[in-house]
């Protein structure tokens, strides 16, 4: 999986550029490159549904973030205890990476997943639901409560945006 490693290094470089650059519009566009790299990574990992969804969602995220940042390119403060804060954050991240590396030894090896539940879906999915696309049959038949919860969360998000951005009832 050499191509996947190259793609992940590309995504990490894009993320570091997005974090470190001063210009907010450049940072948003760098996040766009990270998301498009993730879309290609899904395609390499044999998940075409996720590749399509990630591609179109990334376009919408970039449009929304550009709307939020346009013509508001302000400098942000670097005063305060700069050295102390950065030192504490780096120590925390190094400890986090060490513990994560230790935990990863207990995971199954890459390329050999434990497919206890999924094996029954793969064997009986076409017979039970009649859907050729097994991801669709899991999302909408076996685990349809997930989709119900997702619809609820989307509805809540729409109501939240409406409540935050409302015009009437605001204190002048």
């Amino acid at each position: 999986m050499l191509e996947l490693q190259i793609l992940l290094v590309f995504m990490i470089i894009g993320a570091i550029v997005a974090v470190k650059t001063k210009d907010l519009l450049s940072a948003v566009i760098a996040v766009g490159t990270v998301g498009l790299g993730l879309s290609v990574a899904f395609l390499i990992l044999k998940a075409p549904d996720l590749a399509i969804a990630q591609l179109v969602v990334e376009i919408l995220v970039v449009i929304i973030l550009i709307r939020a940042t346009i013509r508001k390119d302000l400098p942000f403060s670097t005063s305060g205890r700069w050295f102390f804060n950065t030192f504490v954050v780096f120590v925390f991240l190094i400890v986090f990476l060490i513990f994560g590396y230790i935990c990863m030894k207990d995971l199954p090896k890459f390329g050999e997943p434990i497919m206890k539940v999924a094996q029954s879906f793969l064997n009986n999915g076409l017979k039970d639901t009649g859907a050729t696309n097994l991801v669709s049959s899991i999302v909408l038949d076996y685990r349809a409560y997930d989709t119900l919860g997702e619809a609820t969360i989307l509805f809540t998000a729409v109501i939240g945006v409406l409540a935050v951005m409302r015009k009437v009832g605001r204190k002048k």
């Binding site: 639901t129 049959s137 989709t147």
Partner: peptide, 29 residues
């Protein structure tokens, strides 16, 4: 036209996601 109710669920989800994101975007713009 196969697999029972799954296409109808798909249509319902697409109405919900499409209209919801369009409303969010109109409000933001």
């Amino acid at each position: 036209f196969s697999s029972g109710l799954i296409p109808l669920y798909n249509v319902a989800i697409s109405f919900k996601v499409g209209a919801g994101l369009f409303i969010i975007f109109v409000i933001l713009v």
